[in-house]
């Protein structure tokens, strides 16, 4: 009997402790509901209406069919695909190589190189856009000044040609964000267990073999994180495109961010802007789930994972 009451008392205490623990989750839950869940639901609701806020009329899925029937939407999908396919692997590759050489082959100037390559990440996008517009400018531009010494004359600006505009913007994005990939890999390399590296060296692995067969696989968590962040970053692309081309010429470099902005704020068509936002949300969710399902959710640096 005494044992039974003791168990009951423990259970009561445990239940009370559990309910107290829920209180700790409350602030984060409230913030999530107010700043994330409610806006998402509000936007989803708006996507079902057409007209202005004062005279909005329920239109069901009309905004979705309009958006999906708009050729610009498919230009945007193509641009986003190109953006993701080029920026994510190239940034990871260059960032990884930089991290490897900085961490393993520089000593006194390590801090200097880390800072220099990371500088574009913390530079204002407005400044980056202004500088790259000048770099790309033919005839009077910065690149042209150097190219003329080897007899090359730029006839057009890469961002002024519908065929090359998106690629020109992708190059700027890679230039800006490679430093972030580098930093992630530097953190990964710094966390590599030295005993594994020493064992590999004793087994005769060095140079290229050590990098490709030992270090790269052990940096998989950093790679997965960069992949996930890269996909999300791709879908969130806005300032560089808005400032450099405005989505032009003739919508050739439009991305989801600029398309949503134009529909909602320039054209005042809040309904289709909201429908586009919901579509982007669904795409982002689906891609994230696929990545987690395929690659796993282990995103912590190697050797630091909790058991």
């Amino acid at each position: 009997m005494r044992a039974g009451s003791a168990i009951a008392a423990v259970k009561r205490r445990s239940a009370s402790r559990a309910s107290r623990l829920y209180l700790f989750v409350l602030p984060a839950t409230l913030l999530f509901v107010v700043f994330i869940a409610y806006p998402i639901l509000w936007v989803a609701g708006q996507s079902l209406y057409v007209g202005t806020s004062a005279g909005a009329v329920f239109a069901g899925l009309a905004n979705y069919t309009t958006v999906l029937g708009d050729p610009t939407f498919w230009t945007v999908v193509r641009n986003m695909f190109l953006w993701g396919v080029f920026t994510i692997p190239v940034q990871m590759l260059i960032g990884g190589v930089l991290a490897y050489f900085i961490e393993r082959h520089t000593h006194a100037l390590r801090g200097f190189f880390r800072t220099m390559f990371f500088l574009p990440v913390v530079t204002s996008v407005s400044v980056i856009s202004l500088v790259w517009v000048q770099i790309y400018a033919p005839y009077y531009g910065i690149a042209q000044e150097y190219l003329k010494h080897v007899g090359i004359v730029m006839a057009t600006s890469p961002i002024g040609d519908p065929k090359s505009a998106i690629y020109a913007l992708i190059i700027v994005n890679i230039w800006q964000w490679t430093g972030f990939s580098m930093l992630m890999y530097i953190a990964g390399i710094a966390n590599l267990p030295t005993e594994v590296l020493d064992a590999a060296r004793i087994d005769g692995a060095k140079g290229w073999r050590l990098a490709v067969h030992v270090i790269v696989p052990m940096l998989a968590p950093a790679t997965k994180s960069l992949l996930l962040l890269g996909v999300i970053g791709t879908l969130q692309t806005f300032p560089i495109v808005h400032l450099m081309t405005g989505g032009g010429p003739n919508r050739a470099s439009e991305v989801f961010g600029t398309f949503i902005f134009k529909q909602s704020f320039v054209l005042g068509d809040t309904g289709s802007g909201a429908a586009l936002s919901v579509i982007v949300l669904v795409i982002a969710l689906a891609l994230s789930l696929i990545q987690i399902a395929v690659l796993g959710a282990r995103l912590t640096p190697a050797g630091r994972q909790r058991p």
Binding site: T156, S157, T245
Partner: peptide, 13 residues
């Protein structure tokens, strides 16, 4: 117009 005008901005450039 100058060459590459389609990639140029009136302000500030």
């Amino acid at each position: 117009f100058q060459q590459g005008a389609l990639g140029a901005h009136a302000y500030p450039t």
